[in-house]
Simulated assay, not measured.
Amino acid sequence: MNTDQVLTTPRVEPLEPVTTDEPDPLAKITLTPRGFAALLATIGLLLGLILAIVPVHVAGPDPANPVTVSCGNTIGGVEPASVAANLNNPDRPTMTAYVTMCETAISNRTFATWPMFLAGALTIIWMGVVRRESKVTAPASPGS
């Protein structure tokens, strides 16, 4: 039995470059940077608008009977009549505390939704105003 180690060198042949005249199949479904920005702007605009319209809720006063108190939305602000109806006509200090909680909750929602909505709207407006890059074409030859 031979204990010498036998080393072989692999045969290396250069590969031929792949050339095709067909366009890239991913180019059909890949978004351009401008299209991607438009998609993000639209998502921000819609998400901000939806979150601005959806009513804000806070927890009810009784932990044994969990209910939510509807406060209103970021566009209309706090609706005291709705808060009072959800609390079954509470006394004045309870009503004042819940109106304050509702104002804080609406303020927190406003802090997140309006910048998203405005950024989306401004980006969409900007995309409509700023020109797209045009592809440069070669000038026609004088003989054609």
Rank of each mutant, 00 (worst) to 15 (best):
A112R: 06
G76S: 15
T96Y: 08
R131P: 08
T104F: 08
A52N: 07
A52K: 05
M95R: 02
P115V: 13
L40C: 10
G77C: 11
T68E: 10
N65A: 13
M116F: 15
A37N: 00
G60C: 06
P90Q: 01
R92E: 15
W126Q: 11
V58S: 00
L40M: 11
R109S: 13
S82H: 09
G60D: 05
S107I: 13
E79H: 10
V83S: 03
P115F: 12
T74N: 02
R132S: 15
T42R: 02
L31H: 04
T113N: 02
N65F: 10
C102T: 12
L46D: 07
L45C: 07
P33Q: 10
W126Y: 14
G60W: 07
A64E: 06
L49S: 07
A81I: 08
N88C: 09
F36H: 07
I125T: 09
G120Y: 02
G128N: 15
A38C: 06
G77L: 09
T104Q: 09
W126K: 12
L45K: 07
S107D: 14
N73M: 01
T123I: 05
L31F: 04
E103T: 13
V54L: 01
W126A: 14
E79A: 12
I53N: 04
R109L: 12
V99C: 09
Y98K: 03
N89F: 12
M127K: 07
A97E: 13
I29Q: 02
I50N: 05
G60M: 05
N73E: 00
L45A: 08
V130N: 09
M95N: 03
A105N: 10
L51V: 06
G48I: 04
G72E: 03
L45F: 14
M127E: 11
A27S: 09
T123V: 02
E103S: 14
L51N: 07
P61S: 03
S107L: 15
K28T: 11
I29E: 03
Y98S: 00
V129W: 08
L40S: 10
A38T: 04
W114V: 06
E103K: 14
S107A: 15
W114E: 02
N86H: 11
R131W: 09
M101T: 02
W126L: 13
G128V: 10
W114T: 06
L49A: 09
K28L: 13
L39I: 11
T123K: 00
A27T: 06
P55L: 05
W114Q: 03
N86Y: 08
P25M: 01
I53S: 05
V67K: 14
F36T: 04
A59R: 10
L45Y: 09
N73T: 00
G72T: 04
T30N: 09
L87D: 01
T110F: 10
A27I: 05
L26S: 04
P61V: 05
A64G: 06
T100Q: 15
L31D: 00
P80W: 05
S70F: 01
E103N: 14
P66R: 10
G120A: 03
E79Q: 12
W126I: 12
A27Q: 06
